[in-house]
Nucleic acid binder design. Structure first.
Lengths: 164, 164
DNA sequence: CATTATGTTCAATAATTACTGAACTAAATG
DNA sequence: CATTTAGTTCAGTAATTATTGAACATAATG
């Protein structure tokens, strides 16, 4: 593990905190991303991150639950290995959109409790309608992505090459 | 303030915590939503929520900073009043998308630190390309919303009426 | 079946974050 | 210019959340 990678792992920890994940979860993801192994063992993670067994155990379980990481079992080896899972782009996004639908519900409930129909009612109605509509619209966007992604990724790769 | 509204305010507090906001911020928003006044004073908020001056002061400032609330000044009155601002639906969404772009950057940086070009590199490339693409695509979605919202909101209103 | 390896669980502690309350500033009022 | 009103600031505390570490469970190995 190079110094740069260790530093990256900490950065990833901080960045994932912005997503409401724990720092440790971000560190593990960061480690799995920069590791050049197919999959890594519980112990490798522990040692690389200098964290406790309990912490690694709990956090890998969380990451598996939300689908970012998957456990890998190898024949003739009793250890469990872990790797980044091929989570579909859409599913990360859609999980977040659930929050917006919850937000819309809160706005609707608030509106229903008002005696008056006022500026705020109109606002909550518009915002809530939008997020509900958006929840469906996103499927169209994801379909478009599926159709176009090949070209877009090719272009991104080229852009990256030019940057260097 | 009815019992139902007070209960709603607490619910709103919990719900907004899911968005990474504080419970108090959610409570204030909840209160502003169900209040049938045009705008409410610092003191009314304090009393309604039974919270300290310090807490209301700090939290209203936060809510103003992120654009959910706006202060209102009335002639011949030295108090500041507060109300829900007419925040555009798109701007709430776009603020969230900034987080995804940050996420994409972390994935890109991770990929650049790898020695190998492997399954994980491909995944980080795809996910990161998607979020960057999505950041632009969202503008098209918002344009579509602007064109269609009038009809959609009308429909939502009808749906709500039928529910009752 | 004793020993070792691989994790899990959970109580205790550390770290972080939210909230209070009291002292303070600034502006308006008499 | 003393007093009142409105709100800010910030140190201390409360509450929450993350992490450790040790005891435990389970399964494989000799």
């Amino acid at each position: 593990m190079t110094e740069k990678k260790l530093q990256y792992i900490e950065e990833a920890g901080m960045a994932f905190e912005l997503f409401g994940m724990t720092r440790m979860a971000g560190r593990i993801l960061g480690y799995l991303i920069v590791s050049d192994k197919e999959s890594v063992s519980f112990n490798e993670i522990m040692e690389a991150l200098k964290a406790s067994k309990g912490s690694i155990s709990g956090t890998t379980k969380q990451l598996i639950a939300i689908g970012f990481v998957e456990p890998v079992s190898l024949p003739g080896d009793r250890k469990t290995y872990y790797r980044i899972s091929n989570l579909k782009v859409g599913s990360i996004l859609k999980a977040r959109i659930q929050l917006f639908l919850k937000f819309a519900d809160v706005l609707d409930k608030g509106r229903s409790l008002k005696e008056k129909n006022d500026r705020v009612s109109e606002w909550t109605l518009e915002v809530s309608s939008f997020y509900k509509w958006f929840g469906d619209e996103i499927d169209l966007v994801l379909q478009k992505w599926e159709r176009e992604k090949e070209n877009i990724i090719k272009q991104t790769t080229k852009d990256n090459e030019n940057k260097q």
